[in-house]
């Protein structure tokens, strides 16, 4: 019993860490226009809409965060192997991983922008200086929380995988959660605030992203500020729930039928979430969707 209570405590702690990580990850990727919204930022100058939005296309978020987290964990593992205290080792590992992330971000922005020279898109040095540091700060929070939760899974819950491998898996999951949950909010709504709500991206509006802010010209910190309110929180809840429920079902039901209990509960959870998702989707379509309007127009 005591072991289960300890396990649930660790599970709650990892869930909390994961929530912070998911929120920071989504904000980081939105400031960098990474993932799904990236194509529109890349396309805008080609359609004649020059902008001051940061565009760091390192990779899709899942592989990118797979690398940052695995790297942070690998370095932390190496520091721990050198007999450095675990907390200090994780912090040092994450600092170096964030350094790599920052360098990749600057080279991505420079490369993409320089290749758009034909359309007159300039390289803004102030954008590199101000946006990269902000993404690095958010990335540090995301990487640190993920590596810390992996260390808890490995050290406190006794998971057999080594730290870097766990961080690779959870890093990819983190990127996937942020990419699937938070990005549509930035890519479909924030970039297209001048379009009808919920209309998605009509082809005629491709590249016509919002480039001017309440005051002056919009930059990516405005986007991070805006999307953090709902997109970041939603991503945080998403990743937090994934980590929490995954560990919760393992700790409580692993003993039943030699592990099959945990698998059965996992399948049950997926079914419950499918029903919830379907309900929300239908509800949202009924209330906001342009779908009904389009049908009326056809008939």
């Amino acid at each position: 019993m005591e072991q289960i209570v300890f396990g649930i405590g660790i599970t709650a702690l990892t869930g909390a860490l994961a929530t912070v990580a998911g929120s920071a990850e989504d904000t980081e990727s939105n400031i960098g226009s990474q993932g799904d919204p990236n194509s529109q930022v890349q396309l805008a100058p080609q359609m004649g809409f020059l902008h001051r939005i940061f565009n760091k296309a390192v990779a899709g978020e899942p592989p990118a965060y797979g690398l940052w987290c695995a790297l942070g964990a690998g370095l932390a593992w190496a520091f721990m192997a050198m007999q450095i205290n675990a907390i200090l080792a994780i912090v040092l590992g994450c600092v170096l991983a964030v350094f790599v992330q920052g360098v990749y971000a600057t080279t991505a922005y420079l490369g993409r922008t320089a290749s758009l020279a034909k359309f007159g898109q300039p390289v803004y040095v102030d954008i590199i200086k101000s946006m990269t540091t902000v993404t690095m700060a958010h990335a540090f929070i995301a990487i640190f929380c993920t590596v810390a939760l992996c260390q808890l899974i490995n050290g406190a819950l006794g998971h057999p995988f080594p730290l870097p491998l766990l961080a690779l898996i959870w890093g990819i999951a983190l990127g996937a959660a942020g990419s699937a949950t938070g990005n549509p909010y930035y890519g479909k709504e924030r970039q297209y605030q001048n379009q009808k709500f919920g209309a998605g991206v009509p082809i005629s509006a491709s590249g016509n992203i919002v480039r001017y802010a309440e005051a002056g010209e919009r930059n990516s910190i405005d986007n991070g500020f805006f999307t953090h309110k709902i997109g970041g929180s939603a991503s945080g809840i998403c990743f937090g729930l994934i980590v929490f429920l995954e560990l919760w079902r393992t700790i409580l039901f692993e003993k039943i039928y030699a592990g099959w209990g945990a698998i059965a509960v996992g399948v049950l959870l997926i079914l419950i979430f499918t029903v919830i998702d379907r309900y929300i989707e239908v509800w949202a379509r009924k209330n906001y969707g342009p779908y009904t309007a389009a049908k009326e127009a056809e008939s």
């Binding site: 296309a57 990749y104 993409r112 690779l168």
Partner: peptide, 19 residues
């Protein structure tokens, strides 16, 4: 992953008409 990101990043970052 260090290799997998490093091998794809250069073209991914530099693609475009001005490659």
């Amino acid at each position: 992953l260090l290799g997998a990101i490093a091998i794809q990043h250069p073209f991914n970052a530099c693609l475009g008409p001005g490659w």
